[in-house]
Each structure stands twice: as C-alpha cells, then as structure tokens.
Design a protein around this nucleic acid. Sequence first.
RNA 1: GCGCCUGUAGCUCAGCUGGAUAGAGCAACGGACUUCUAAUCCGUGGGCCGCAGGUUCGAAUCCUGCCAGGCGCGCCA
Length: 602
Amino acid sequence: MLAERVQRVMAAWAAEEGWREAPICQLERPAEEAHGDYATPVCMQMARAARRSPRHLAEELRLRLLADKEVARLVESIEVAGPGFLNLYLNGTAYSEAMTEMLAQGEEIGRVPPRAHPRINLEFVSVNPNGPLHVGHGRYAAYGDSLHRLLAFSGANVTTEFYINDFGRQMDRFGRSVAARYAQSFDLDLPVPGDGYQGDYVNEIAAGARAKVGDRYVAALRPAAVERRPAAAAGAESGGAPSPRAGEDLAAMAEEVFEDEGAEESSDWPQDPGVLEAVAFFKSWGCQAMLEGMRTELAGFGVLFDCWFSETALHSSGRLERVVQRLLETGEAYREGDAVWLRTTSRGDDKDRVLIRSNDQPTYFAADIAYHEDKLERGFEHLINIWGADHHGYVPRMNAAVEILSGRPGTLEVIIGQLVNLLEEGALKQMSTRRGEMVTLAELIDAIGVDAARFFLVSRSQDQTLDLDIDLARRHSQENPVYYVQYAHARISGIVRNVPEGTVTAISEGSGVFASPYERALIKRLESFSSVVQDAAERRAPHRIVAYAQELSADFHVFYKHCRVIGAEPDDASARFALCLVVRRVVFRCLDLLGVSAPESM
RNA sequence: GCGCCUGUAGCUCAGCUGGAUAGAGCAACGGACUUCUAAUCCGUGGGCCGCAGGUUCGAAUCCUGCCAGGCGCGCCA
C-alpha cells in the first residue's frame, strides 16, 4: 500500500523530469530503529544519472511524498539521512490499519493459496534399509520435512518420497548378517561375515524372524556354517580383490577391503541353493523389519512420506531394462568395451557414465535413471532431491540424465546437505554403520526430545556442516532456544485463558492504540512474516523460519514485559488482545513449519 | 591435481540476489518477580567478517588470486 503509493509518486516525478523510466524505489525495513520504519536508498542510486547530489534528490522526493495525500495519511515524518537515505516514520494510523488487516487474515495468515503447477516431487532420507537411522539422516529428515511444509504453505504442489535402496551388495551382506544371527540362535557356528553388520539390532531382527518361521532355515544354512572357516583365511589374503597388487602393504590392503564398500564380493558363503534361498529370505525379512521401524520412527519424528519407492521394483518390473534400451535407441547411450554408457558429457558432465557393466550388471546410476523416469511419468514437473555431501560428485551426471529424460534442463534440483559432526566430550565421534558404532536418531531424540531435535537440526543452513555436541544436548536441554519460542506461545495461551469474559479483539481508529515501541516492533515483525516465508521457500532455507521465530518471540517477550493486556484501558486491551492472537497464530505456524509442537502451557 | 561446501564475538552460528554504527543464542559479569507463567526481561564486556587485490557512491555480501578445514572425483552404492 505505502510502497505502491511511494512508487506512484516516483513515477509521477520521473514523468515530470522526462526520465525514461521511474527508478524503482525499494522500501526497506532498516535494521537500525533510528533509521525509521522504512528507508530507501533510491536517491543514491539515481544520483549519477540525474547529475544531482543524492541529498538534494532526497530532499525533493521528501517534499513530493509529503504532498501526497495517502502517504501523508500514514506517515508521521520523513527524513533525509546519511549520504542520501530517505527514512520514513509511520504514524499510529498505519500501525492500526496493518493490524486490522492481519487480524482479518485469520488462522492461515501468511499462507499462499495452492497452485496446481508445477507438480513437485521432493525426495529425501532415502537410505539402505539395513541399519538404524543415525543423526545425519535425522538432519535430512528434519530439513526435508520442514522444506515440504514450507513449500506447501507457500502454495507449491509437493509430494514427498522415500527411495528405498533395497538392492545391491550392501543388502546382500545385511541378509547374510541376519541369517548368521538367526543361525547362531540355534547354536550353529555361523559368524557374521567380516563385511557384514554387527549391531545388536541385527539380533533383534533375527529373533523376530525366528519367532515367525521357527527352525525352517536352520538346515539350509548349515553348509555355510561348516564350510566357512577354512575358506575365510584364504579369503582374507586375496581380499577379494580381482587383481593382486604386488608391493602393497598387506595390512593396508586388508583395511581397504574392510572400509571399501565397493570391494568386489568377498563373501565366501557357498553358492548352495538352500543357503541362497535362506539368505534371500532373511534379506527380505530384514528389509521389511527395518522399513517398518523407520516408518514408525520417522512418524514419531513428525515426518510422513507420501510415497515409499523400492529400488528392487525397478529391476523386477523391467523398467530399468526398458529405459536403457530406449536410451540406446535414441543414441543417448552407446556400447563400448562390453559396457553400456550414457552420453552425459552432452549435458555438461565431465565424462560419460556406465549404465550396464561388462558383467551385465546394471549400475546404481542406471537404476536411479529408471527411478527418475518413473517420477517424470507419474507427472512430476520438478524433481527435488536432498542428498548428503558425500554424494555431490554424483550431481552432474544425474542432472544430465534427467535433462535427457525430460528434454529440458533444470528439471532436477539437487540440494546438497552437509554432514553432521558428532562431538562427545569435545572430541569427534567416528561412526560406522557396519560395526554398529554410531549415534542413532533414536538416541538423540531420547536425549533431547523430538521438539529440540527438530528445531536444532534445521536451525542451521543445510550447506553448513553441523557440529552436534551430544553432552551439550543432554546437559543443556533446558537452554535450547526452542523453549524460548514455545514459551511465547504458552504465555499468549495463558492470556487467552485469563482474559475477562467479553474482551473483544478490536482496533479502534484514532484512539491512540499501538503507541509504544514494543507494540510497533511486534507489528512490524508480524508484517514481514509472509515475505520471510516466501524467501525461505524460494531459497529452500527453513532455518530462516527458525531465526524469524526467535526474533518474533523476542519481540513478544519484550512486549509482554512492558505492556499489560488484561487490566489495560479498554481500547488498549482490545487492541493488544488482537495483537496477541495474531502473534500466537504466527508463532504456531512457525513451529508447525518446523514440525515442533506449540504447547498451551509450560 | 580438479570440483563442491565452509572460514563472521571465547563457543555454536545467522546475515551472503550489495546499503547507514556487522547480529543472535550459549558462556562471563551486574540488576529486575505484591501485576496476564522469571523457561522471561534490562544492562556490561567481547570482532583486522581467513588474507590480498578488484568492481561500486557504498562490500561480510559480487569478481580474481592465495591460505586453512570438510566432502567428493569407480564398470561402488
């Protein structure tokens, strides 16, 4: 309103002076209170073209603005300041009208009406279902879910998705690990493979399987138990590496084999049909059990997915094969040296990438292409993927692939989330999924609760590595800023409970309400909410909501200290009550966007 | 070697599609509860915004180079 009016004055001035176009007079909200409610640097920007000093221009603009009826109605004073800034001070009418408008917006203040297009698919977490979710996954879950809420609130059409990496060697190892624990529970001497999963949760899954199928697979697994030992020694020496590398330190090689997830198959379990069938069963069983656990855990964390998509299904349905075939036909893919390659260099990648290896096995990349083709065929027009920083090297090829599939660049948007460093007793805590050494999301939630965990995990920009001190999280849980924000909500709820019967929310014009700087600061903050939401959504930056929520809460707590609602003069009481209600709606919304609860009392 | 991310107060970090004297929380110190919840408020101290150039009326912000840390650079997933 004011901004538009100012722009109109600007345009009229430009017309008078014969300027080709009116300079855009951006009204900013200065950080410094002494710089007014609004400020504009426009005169400094136009000084050169106008060949006049910024302060002279500012003085003329000041007079022109004051001469405008509508501007004069809302503005207390206008000052020329500094090198040529124009500072505008609003009067009580402007504040009252702003509040009246915000009050009328109701519960959904700040929400943008839903748009049908583009249809957005937002994929995040997407892990191998072979171990507990750890804190890093928790960060992606919290970030992705908040982003989902933020995008939806700002009108986007978003579907969330969890890609289940239930295919490949890691899952085979997981299956053998469960099988081994199962066998052990029947006193069979079948150790968990060295490259397998050692965590206690594997025992629990095996126990669950035993409760379901009894001893059905014990006999089938016996060959693995008997034959394993002698083979193990030989396996360790060759390390499963296809070509011996003379001169390399044996210990270093062994270390590499252990750490390298991409090492060639090193399991020495016999390829006995019974064993294979048993392992397949335990893999499937374990996968289902883990997924069920994750679904429950994520739901408890406030994160619900619209769709869970299985990688294995891409292989079994033939989609993977079809897309590779299609790419070969269109010439985007080609055969070379027994392998099939995708020409990703045509879309900005450093080198072409293998789709089908020379042993006829498809790569993970090929499956991912099939997956993204599926997303496109389901009608999604924009695909957002949230990946860990350790996958960022994968971005160019995937961008290229989706561009090839969709025929237009920019369809895929990969958001790289940096990792979480866990500190314990001031030292970095190293984690390994297979050894079962890690801090799980469940442990973090146990230590500090869902609200604090979610608030904390999204409080920093996602492209910033996040240091999480476990001891601090435990010890200072009371001092987490989440309580500061929740407390603002609880305090307002207290006012709502205690307000005398018949108190109305009304802002009477000309009654001199909202005269204090505390009320005005709050109103200004509330007014910026919708632009903060838009900004946070566009920049995929939910942490801005965290910062805003803290600022709004701070403004409220100061207001609360200085301004009574109950017991104030009737005009003030009604106006402040209205103000409180709007603050509560916005605080509630911020917390909701973050997946944090908004308590009525604390 | 190449690519991506990061370097801001003692600590953890905002601010980065350029604006005035660079902010918050924690930690430290000193104050405020006969009033709607003191999980709060008020005050004090604390900074070559990694370094050096450049663009601009104006740079923490944009460009270049350098230094430091993290991650990545497979016919692994």
